[in-house]
Nucleic acid binder design. Sequence first.
DNA 1: GTAATTCTGGTAATTAAATGCTCAAATGTA
DNA 2: TACATTTGAGCATTTAATTACCAGAATTAC
Lengths: 132, 132
Amino acid sequence: MSKVFSLSEAASIALHGIILIAREKEGLNVIKIAERTSTSKHHVAKVMQRLVKAGYLTSQRGPSGGFSLKKKAEDISFLELYEVIEGAIEISTCPMDKPICPFDKCIFKNVTSKLTLEFKNYLQEQTVDLYL
Amino acid sequence: MSKVFSLSEAASIALHGIILIAREKEGLNVIKIAERTSTSKHHVAKVMQRLVKAGYLTSQRGPSGGFSLKKKAEDISFLELYEVIEGAIEISTCPMDKPICPFDKCIFKNVTSKLTLEFKNYLQEQTVDLYL
DNA sequence: GTAATTCTGGTAATTAAATGCTCAAATGTA
DNA sequence: TACATTTGAGCATTTAATTACCAGAATTAC
């Protein structure tokens, strides 16, 4: 069974993790995020680091440390988080990256760009506060 | 720049390759398919082998050998070819494969299955004869 | 101030895809 | 028949992305 869409685990951790953090009054640490997302603490740590650097989270070291939101939940869209991890979404006609296409018309016509745009719009509409 | 959708090169070779073959009266060999798709002959050979085994192509060895269609172009859909290479397309709600989801509602709602289905339908509608 | 906790950041291991290589088998041609 | 061409198949190598690990730095609690 193959998937047409797939998220990297990193992107999944970013989205799910930030919602978990937003739901907590106190900070939430790596261990708890890893438990609640069924992922490795190492991977969670990496992803959270990137969200800290990108300005979405603040981190607090030491006992009772962890991560907290730096921005308002309603001001954080899924798209921003996704693009922190994956880079900007490319709206391209062809899913391949070939210098030349030997075809007069692309076999994917505009279906690739159309569906990518639909997905991007969905990410744009969804904000963290909708999941508190 | 990240892509939401992406095809494996193998799937691309299968789709483009079979169209190139369908356009030829005589068979088309690995070298020419590789040239016209800007891919390696080794990879092309691998993919063509699978299409032969799956019953879409016949192969002819020796000088002036190559591959020819075994079925009528109008009877070969992109979906069939895609699934020979990638396996059956899975219409799932969640793009991740986690045993548990800690969320009351999936953050992707039905967008993943909706877009996957749209893509699958597109592949189903497209047949090789539309590209001759 | 000591110890436990937690994040930080560099490096290593793993994985999957793609590519490369080689020899064997089949086939047409001279 | 001998030879050049082409597919068939297995295995090894390369590459890029992802995931995992570990020692170090910061901070809190006692």
